[in-house]
């Protein structure tokens, strides 16, 4: 059984050296060559077209739009349980965030990978980013 692939940019691969060797051996490093120049306007369109379905999120949205003070929003935001999001809602959020946002998370996560679970998380984010980049690449039309 082959190791899972980890798509990292050359800059990210430079950080990879800090990960314990036994963990590094569990993945096949591939260079992420796909790039996308995001813009605020494109992000606005993605955000505008987000379709979130979790009842909790819809309630959250309703409460925020009905709030009249900053304190109310502060309270709502600090108690919002974003960990209960479904895969569909999470993918909507990652899609809206775009490859740049996910890249920043990857860079911050990389130096802290110490266990198989951490590695699993890193692989997941890389799969998400690679999927985002692939969907935007010129070859996407043939997929």
């Amino acid at each position: 059984m082959s190791n899972p692939h980890l798509h990292l940019t050359t800059n990210e691969q430079a950080i990879l050296a800090v990960i314990p060797e036994n963990l590094r051996k569990k993945v096949n490093i591939e260079t992420e060559t796909l790039m996308y120049a995001d813009t605020p306007q494109r992000m606005q369109i993605r955000v505008k077209n987000m379709q979130l379905s979790a009842p909790g999120l819809l309630v959250f949205k309703k409460k925020v739009t009905e709030a009249t003070t900053v304190e109310e929003v502060t309270g709502l935001l600090s108690t919002a349980n974003l960990t209960a999001l479904s895969e569909d809602d999470l993918s909507e959020l990652y899609f809206a965030m775009g490859p740049d946002g996910v890249s920043t998370l990857i860079v911050q996560m990389l130096p802290h990978v110490r266990s198989e679970e951490d590695l699993e998380a890193l692989i997941s984010l890389c799969v998400i980013r690679h999927s985002l980049l692939l969907s935007l690449s010129p070859t996407a039309a043939s997929l």
Binding site: M1, S2, P4, L82, E87, L90, D118, E120, I123, S124
Partner: peptide
Amino acid sequence: ITWPVRKILWPPIKW
């Protein structure tokens, strides 16, 4: 290869 599909999106949150 290794992991359940379900984990693809969830581990970042858990992590």
